[in-house]
């Protein structure tokens, strides 16, 4: 993993978008960027949980480049959330390259779903290196 942004904590915020939700993500390295993307998704979907943390699930996604990988990762989390009726809140990326990600995730049962996220889109999707690490922009269909 790169350590050029060791001082930077992973973060996310919402960018104004009339119709959908646009996420801006920043992290010291690619692995923590993808973990932060998972946490951002969870913060949109849920305010509070009911019940205990579920067991770890292994997720592997493959793609053509880093942006494509983020598209695949978020859509896989959305798919698995819907199938398992959970919101994933803990993420541990175990292997990552521009074309492959392997992670373990754990979810909780939400008391209510706050924002139902339909999908991550390709629109304005970017993953870029920065002076402090790596950043990404992704628009979610909600």
């Amino acid at each position: 993993m790169s350590s050029k942004g060791a001082d930077q904590r992973p973060s996310h915020h919402l960018v104004e978008h009339t119709g959908e939700v646009q996420l801006q993500l920043e992290a010291p390295d690619l692995a923590s960027l993808f973990e932060e993307a998972g946490r951002a998704l969870a913060s949109l979907m849920m305010e509070e949980s009911a019940g205990s943390m579920g067991t770890a699930i292994a997720i592997t996604v493959e793609a053509t480049d880093r942006a494509d990988l983020l598209f695949e990762w978020l859509n896989e989390l959305i798919y698995r959330s819907e199938m398992d009726k959970v919101v994933f809140v803990e993420f541990s990326v175990q292997e990552i390259s521009a074309k492959k990600l392997r992670a373990e995730v754990r979810g909780v049962t939400p008391r209510e779903i706050r924002t139902a996220v339909k999908a991550a889109t390709f629109h304005d999707l970017t993953v870029a290196d920065t002076a402090n690490g790596v950043s990404a922009t992704v628009v979610l269909d909600v």
Partner: peptide, 9 residues
Amino acid sequence: IHQGYGFPV
């Protein structure tokens, strides 16, 4: 019409 993704809504 308003901003969407790809096509506008």
